[in-house]
C-alpha cells in the first residue's frame, strides 16, 4: 500500500513525481511554493504587473502540460524559471519590444551615451537601506532598453552564460557581450548619479 504524500512537508522532487502521475494537489503545492519567484521574474522582464500575472499563470499551465518532459536535470524551480523566461521573451518579441539584432548592432556600433561615460563608482550602499537600494536598482533597470534589461536579468539574476543568453535572445554572443557591457555601464551611471544626489 502506498503512503499518502504529506504535501506541505514533501520535497519538490516528491511533489513533481506525484504531479507527473496527474496528482493535481501536488502540483498546487508546487505552485504555492514558487509562484512568487515566477511572478517576480515576469515582472522584472515585462515591467508590467498585469502582463506578468497573466504570463506566470500561463507558465504554470504549460508546466502542467509538459511535466512529463521534466527529467530532473535541473531543479524544478529552475525549469519553471526557464518556462517563464521563454514566455516573456516570446511576448516581448510579439510586442516588438525586443529589437532585431541588426538594428541593435547598428545602434551600438555608432556608440551609445554609455560608451562615452567616464568610469564611475556606483557604490551607494553606505548610505542606503537594503530595501531602498533594491528599489533604486529596480528603478534603474526600468530605465534600460528592453534588450539591455533582459540581458542583465538573464546574466546577473539567472546566471546564464553568454552562449545560453545568445540562444534564448536569438542573437550572437558578441551582441550579448555588447548589450551586457552597455547595460552595466548605464546602471553604474544611474546608481552613481543617485549617490551624488544623496551627498548634495
Amino acid at each position: 500500500m502506498s503512503r499518502k504524500l504529506d504535501y506541505p512537508s514533501a520535497a519538490d522532487d516528491a511533489l513533481v513525481k506525484a504531479a507527473q502521475k496527474a496528482d493535481m494537489q501536488a502540483f498546487e503545492e508546487l505552485v504555492a511554493r514558487h509562484r512568487d519567484k515566477i511572478y517576480a521574474r515576469a515582472v522584472s522582464m515585462m515591467r508590467n504587473e498585469e502582463e506578468a500575472a497573466d504570463l506566470s499563470q500561463e507558465a504554470w499551465v504549460k508546466a502542467w502540460q509538459r511535466l512529463k518532459q521534466f527529467q530532473g536535470e535541473a531543479s524544478f524551480v529552475t525549469w519553471m524559471t526557464r518556462i517563464i523566461i521563454n514566455l516573456c521573451l516570446d511576448q516581448l518579441r510579439k510586442q516588438k519590444r525586443l529589437r532585431a539584432e541588426s538594428i541593435e548592432q547598428l545602434d551600438e556600433e555608432l556608440g551609445g551615451v554609455e560608451r562615452q561615460m567616464p568610469v564611475v563608482t556606483p557604490n551607494p550602499t553606505e548610505r542606503m537601506e537594503r530595501g531602498e537600494l533594491r528599489q533604486r536598482i529596480d528603478e534603474a533597470l526600468g530605465k534600460l532598453s528592453c534588450e539591455h534589461r533582459t540581458v542583465l536579468i538573464l546574466h546577473e539574476f539567472e546566471e546564464l552564460e553568454y552562449k545560453e543568453i545568445a540562444k534564448r535572445m536569438q542573437c550572437s554572443i558578441g551582441t550579448v557581450m555588447s548589450r551586457l557591457f552597455y547595460a552595466r555601464r548605464k546602471i553604474a551611471a544611474l546608481l552613481a548619479g543617485w549617490k551624488r544626489e544623496e551627498f548634495r
Binding site: 512568487d36 511572478y39 522584472s44 537600494l133 533594491r134 536598482i137 529596480d138
Partner: peptide
Amino acid sequence: NELEVRLP
C-alpha cells in the same frame, strides 16, 4: 539586490 515581488 534583486527586488522582491509578491503575487498580489
